[in-house]
């Protein structure tokens, strides 16, 4: 016993090394001050009547559930929540996932030259700064713009006529490369033996995709849905630069409403409370996807 104790600490187990703390310290400090603290602070501010200017900007109070009662009676908030869900479901969950997978599958089977050119164009759309995408889609959808000429309605400003559809399309246009890359990687990583077996057994292309490839891709699909939902829920720049939430409040999704309440109407407390709802919606979607992926396997 005494001899064993003299040998010092056990060597057959991993030990905590102080250098790891030194390496992590800058990150921990940075995230603590500029991430964890703001998150906790937001959870508090969401239940206060803090304002941007005036007396409430200094002497604000904890108002309990007042902001939540206010939301429930706030017509704009209710509409804004629906618009957010329509945007995320239409543009991201359905649009991006379906088009992203279609592109990944088509590119896999295309000519090398077509694959190189189309793949690069789709990715360039994704790499472009959001403000550029907002501008070119603004131009694209104006009366007299390219879209109106293609559809034969040169007098129609599509950004006013169908604003939600246009911002959703612009967002799909920009972000679909992300899903495409995720699915391309997923398809590349599929076990080739299974695919070859299906081919040898004489399964048609359609059956191969429906019965073999899609089930194998399920983890990739769930990951894609999760990431795409979370990324698109907080979309601000593209919509704001194209419409500022208008016409009226037709494209006022929750991130835009948060900005408007906080920095245009000076209601910092109420704005923060709305942002907490946004986080809640994200959490609900994420749980649904994770649950769905577990039950069917």
């Amino acid at each position: 016993m005494a001899v064993a104790a003299g040998l010092g600490p056990r060597l057959d187990r991993e030990r905590f090394q102080w250098t790891s703390l030194a390496l992590l310290a800058p990150t921990l400090a940075m995230l603590g001050v500029l991430f964890v603290f703001p998150v906790l602070y937001a959870c508090y501010l969401g239940f206060t009547n803090l304002a941007l200017v005036g007396s409430r900007s200094r002497d604000y109070d904890f108002t309990g559930l007042e902001n939540i009662t206010r939301m429930l009676g706030d017509y704009v908030f209710i509409k804004s929540s629906w618009l957010t869900i329509i945007f995320v479901v239409g543009s991201a969950i359905v649009g991006q996932t379906v088009l992203g997978m279609a592109l990944a599958i088509l590119l896999r089977n295309a000519l090398v030259s077509v694959r190189a050119v189309i793949g690069s164009i789709v990715i360039v759309a994704w790499v472009l700064p959001e403000i550029t995408v907002a501008l070119i889609w603004y131009a694209f959808s104006q009366a007299g713009g390219t879209l109106s000429i293609l559809l034969g309605h040169t007098e129609t400003n599509f950004l006013v006529a169908v604003p939600m559809l246009i911002v959703s399309l612009a967002n799909l246009w920009r972000n679909v490369a992300f899903s495409m890359l995720v699915f391309s990687a997923g398809l590349r990583n599929l076990p080739t033996e299974v695919l070859e077996a299906a081919e040898v057994e004489g399964a048609s292309v359609w059956r191969r995709y429906r019965l073999v490839i899609l089930p194998l891709l399920k983890p990739t699909i769930v990951t894609n849905l999760l990431l795409v939902t979370i990324l698109n829920l907080s979309e601000f720049t593209l919509i704001y630069a194209m419409t500022q939430g208008g016409p009226g409040i037709e494209t006022m999704t929750l991130p835009l409403y948060v900005y408007q309440e906080a920095f245009v109407f000076h209601q910092l407390g109420y704005g923060t409370a709305i942002s907490l709802v946004l986080v809640l919606i994200g959490a609900v979607f994420s749980l649904l996807f994770v649950r769905a992926s577990r039950t069917q396997v």
């Binding site: 937001a42 501010l45 942002s275």
Partner: peptide, 11 residues
């Protein structure tokens, strides 16, 4: 979402 952090960080 950044929207959540923007108000507390501004403060």
């Amino acid at each position: 979402p950044v929207s959540m952090l923007v108000v507390p960080v501004y403060q």
